[in-house]
């Protein structure tokens, strides 16, 4: 994986919705700068979703600002369905481990 170069877009989000199922793919990083955008995206797309999958295969890292959004999303999904996080890389996995998020999230 190459290092991101200056000026490159920091985060890219794509979605795939099939009825009640929503798959969100996040590329780049979720940090203080990008977390608000990520939060906004989830808010706009989560209504009526009962099965949410977050594909993090191309996520470089996530900071506490991003963890905050993940926690809010998990709380929301606990109320209306299920949520799964997939394809977590080593750096992100370690962050989940250290912060106890690996116990909160369903990682598959």
């Amino acid at each position: 994986m190459a290092l991101k170069k200056k000026g490159e877009r920091l985060m890219n989000i794509t979605k795939n919705r099939e009825e009640n199922k929503l798959t969100v793919t996040v590329e780049g990083k979720i940090d203080s700068v990008t977390a608000p955008e990520f939060e906004e995206f989830i808010k706009e797309n989560i209504d009526g979703v009962t099965e949410l999958t977050l594909d993090l295969s191309s996520l470089d890292y996530i900071s506490s600002a991003g963890l905050r959004v993940l926690l809010l999303t998990q709380k929301r999904m606990n109320a209306q369905g299920t949520m799964k996080v997939t394809n977590v890389n080593e750096t992100v996995s370690e962050i989940f481990e250290v912060t106890g998020f690996s116990d909160i999230l369903t990682i598959g």
């Binding site: 963890l67 926690l71 912060t99 116990d103």
Partner: peptide, 14 residues
């Protein structure tokens, strides 16, 4: 668990 966790406060810890 998720429902008891506070949002925030994790940064310095991380």
């Amino acid at each position: 668990g998720a429902d008891e966790r506070e949002v925030g406060g994790l940064g310095i810890f991380l």
